[in-house]
Design a protein around this nucleic acid. Sequence first.
DNA 1: TTATTACATTAGAATCCTTATAAATAGTGT
DNA 2: ACACTATTTATAAGGATTCTAATGTAATAA
Lengths: 145, 145
Amino acid sequence: MPDHRLQEAIDTLKGSGVRITPQRHAVLEYLLNSMTHPTADEIYKALESKFPNMSVATVYNNLRVFREIGLVRELTYGDSSSRFDCNTTDHYHIICESCGKIVDFHYPSLNEVESLAEQVTGFDVSHHRMEVYGTCSDCQKENAH
Amino acid sequence: MPDHRLQEAIDTLKGSGVRITPQRHAVLEYLLNSMTHPTADEIYKALESKFPNMSVATVYNNLRVFREIGLVRELTYGDSSSRFDCNTTDHYHIICESCGKIVDFHYPSLNEVESLAEQVTGFDVSHHRMEVYGTCSDCQKENAH
DNA sequence: TTATTACATTAGAATCCTTATAAATAGTGT
DNA sequence: ACACTATTTATAAGGATTCTAATGTAATAA
């Protein structure tokens, strides 16, 4: 569906001297089409049928390349494995403590916080991170039983 | 120093039917006194001299108990291991991307964000988390060379 | 006190996620 | 098509955390 996003991403990669291999293309395409925030292993399993010989290291390698170029963000939540998000527009996440679901939500970026932190601490601020935790409506219903 | 906090925590544990063993007491005390946000391994190493036979599993077990009771919060930053924080006072963290230093800073709690997220997503919000990342003044000087 | 029970600790193995290695493979620009 | 070099692959290695089974210890009841 977002063919233009895929093409843009490929152009960005090429512009940085990154080769477009079939595996790389597939990982990128999967990430762009997925609304969830998949783990490396989920991506690996999803592409297993298409690339039976692909190594899990390839998935990690490509995710690292995408992250370094700025195409994806790596999210480290409480659970064991990292999740990858290719939605680079400014948004935050709310995470269900019961089922682990991650939902996007938008909020004006907290620039004030960054500038205040900079003044108070003397840091040179690069970015910030914020998440909200709670129980999603599905799990609220579950728990009601 | 915060003997009352330690005593309160112990009372909370006892109230939940958790036994106070020497190792458990030591882990709890260390966490309450530490201004940094130690990893399990840091706690393990810090208590090594006092408890030469303590297993690293004991540290993990106790941290899990404390977390389940709500005495500490587990924080996962980008790096490999979790950090543990006695989540009592409201404050945020700013983290140096160069040396890993974690500095506290205060900011009015982002209640608006929580309530907006609640409305938009239908979650029942329990808490949020925010950190600012950047380069501390020491590392800025280093880099200037 | 003694026996019983349930909870804790220990040491080490096991597991999971991620990265490193080295050889083979395959894009890309010319 | 060639040469150059990035990439993939399979596997090993690494680190963090959890599991297991045996042992130890605190609380409780008889």
